[in-house]
Amino acid sequence: MSAVAANYQKLQDLGVEVISVSVDSQFVHKIWDEHELSKMIGGEVPFPMVADQNGALGRAYGCWEENQGVELRGRFIIDPDGVIQAMEMLTPPVGRKLGETIRQIQAYQHVRATQGKEACPAGWEPGKTTLKPGPDLVGNVWKVWNPSME
């Protein structure tokens, strides 16, 4: 979570709010922020750290790890309509890559801005070629996109 906190401004610039969730109480979150996270990121954690002590949120989002009583590393991109557009689930020992989350957010924001008229092919980043689905594109994607453009 420190990587997210340290890059919070990048997310805010994209209009993204962050909420973190673990099974720790809000009191433990406070001490973790004060004693460790704030020293990693040079200031307090800027987003709310939610306490899910009974795992209710984790169960609802499919992140609850029953045997250990912890949450898996579930990450959800929720759009302004409250719809989950993307999710990622990792077991505890491997951390996330924030850059990939930001790329996905930018892609979903682009699709939304075009009201679904454009789609983002593999590896799309802002400035790269999008696809415009329609009858003319069927069978002709190869003319406008290929894997070397990923």
């Binding site: 979570m1 997210v4 997310l11 994209l14 209009g15 993204v16 709010e17 962050v18 909420i19 973190s20 969730v21 673990s22 099974v23 720790d24 433990v28 979150h29 001490i31 973790w32 460790e36 899910d52 949120l57 984790g58 989002y61 992140c63 790890e65 250990q68 912890v70 949450e71 898996l72 590393r73 579930g74 990450r75 959800f76 991109i77 929720i78 759009d79 302004p80 409250g82 505890p92 996330r96 989350t101 957010i105 924001q109």
Partner: peptide, 15 residues
Amino acid sequence: YAGKWVMLCFYPGDF
């Protein structure tokens, strides 16, 4: 958070 983009992150635990 209605009307906003949200990144919701679960993680195993503090510390």
